[in-house]
């Protein structure tokens, strides 16, 4: 720590900026959660006040519970998110390992090709994707969503992870080879644990857009039994009347699973300190 960062003025300024930023970032979430516990009138009359004895109401949650099959929607969202995440991390890490570890013809080109997807939004290909899914009979299945999200998440995962894998000690991998470990063993047991912080970062960046996505569920899997939470919440948004209690309650509930996943990954971020492997 340098002396400068201990100066109280700097420290206060830094904290003020960070607190302001946190407040701004959390405000919309807070408004959603707070209002989900209020009556419809109270939401409109004083959207910023906390619920009191008079305005407190669980009507939104009751509606969500009663209408539609929200447990199923949650389950669908979770299945899609977790499965896509697992595939993105597995294949992304494997591709990154191959790119950073092995010298082969076209290595750099392959790396560029795999990273290209970062710059081209996958939604541009929606029509082709839909045709593909129709042709392969995958419309209205969770598989369709998982495949699309895996494709969507891979480029960034490969890009970030290959940077990190290059930093894993070459000597460590070679020591493993001399001890007779297979390349799979080296990858799973030596390299992956050392890039765990990077994996957690990639997981967070990959997970949130998948969980929040409305586009592909709407197009590829709008059937009742494959609806995700974001799509399910749309039933409360009508052309003329919107059931705000239910919408806010559904959104509040939708925050919880991602929050849990995020907590899991951020612990990995912190724990993934691996001093002592080399030097």
């Amino acid at each position: 720590m340098s002396i400068a960062t201990h100066s109280p003025v700097r420290s206060i300024a830094a904290h003020a900026i960070l607190i302001a930023y946190t407040a701004i970032a959390l405000f919309p979430v807070l408004v959603i959660v707070v209002n989900s516990f209020k009556t419809r009138n109270a939401i409109f009359r004083s959207p910023l006040s906390l619920p009191d004895a008079e305005t407190f109401s669980l009507i939104g949650y009751q509606t969500v519970w009663a209408q539609g099959d929200f447990i199923l929607y949650f389950q669908n969202s979770l299945v899609v998110t977790v499965a896509s995440l697992a595939l993105v991390l597995l294949f992304g890490a494997m591709a990154a390992f191959a790119l950073s570890e092995y010298r082969f013809r076209g290595n750099t080109l392959m790396g560029l090709y795999l990273a290209l997807g970062i710059m081209i939004p996958i939604r541009l290909g929606t029509v082709a994707i839909l045709q593909l899914m129709v042709a392969s009979g995958l419309v209205n299945t969770l598989t369709a969503l998982i495949l699309v999200y895996t494709a969507q998440g891979l480029p960034l995962a490969v890009f970030i992870l290959s940077e990190f894998m290059q930093q894993v000690s070459k000597d460590l991998k070679d020591a493993g080879r001399i001890d007779g470990l297979s390349e799979y063993h080296i990858f799973f047991r030596l390299v992956l644990p050392l890039v765990r912080p990077a994996m957690a970062t990639v997981a967070v960046f990959t997970m949130i857009p998948i969980w929040n996505d409305l586009w592909f569920p709407l197009i590829l899997a709008p059937a009742e039994e494959t609806k995700t939470v974001t799509l399910g919440a749309q039933v409360f948004i009508g052309q003329f009347v919107t059931n705000w209690n239910a919408v806010l309650s559904a959104l509040s509930l939708a925050i919880l699973p991602v929050l849990v996943l995020y907590v899991i990954f951020s612990r990995q971020l912190i724990r993934g300190i691996t001093a002592g492997a080399v030097k």
Partner: peptide, 20 residues
């Protein structure tokens, strides 16, 4: 012949111990 079957052992500059 792969490294493990050459009857060699190697000591590296960075020690390269398995951290786990």
């Amino acid at each position: 012949v792969p490294p493990a079957k050459r009857g060699i052992a190697m000591v590296f500059q960075t020690y390269a111990l398995y951290p786990h």
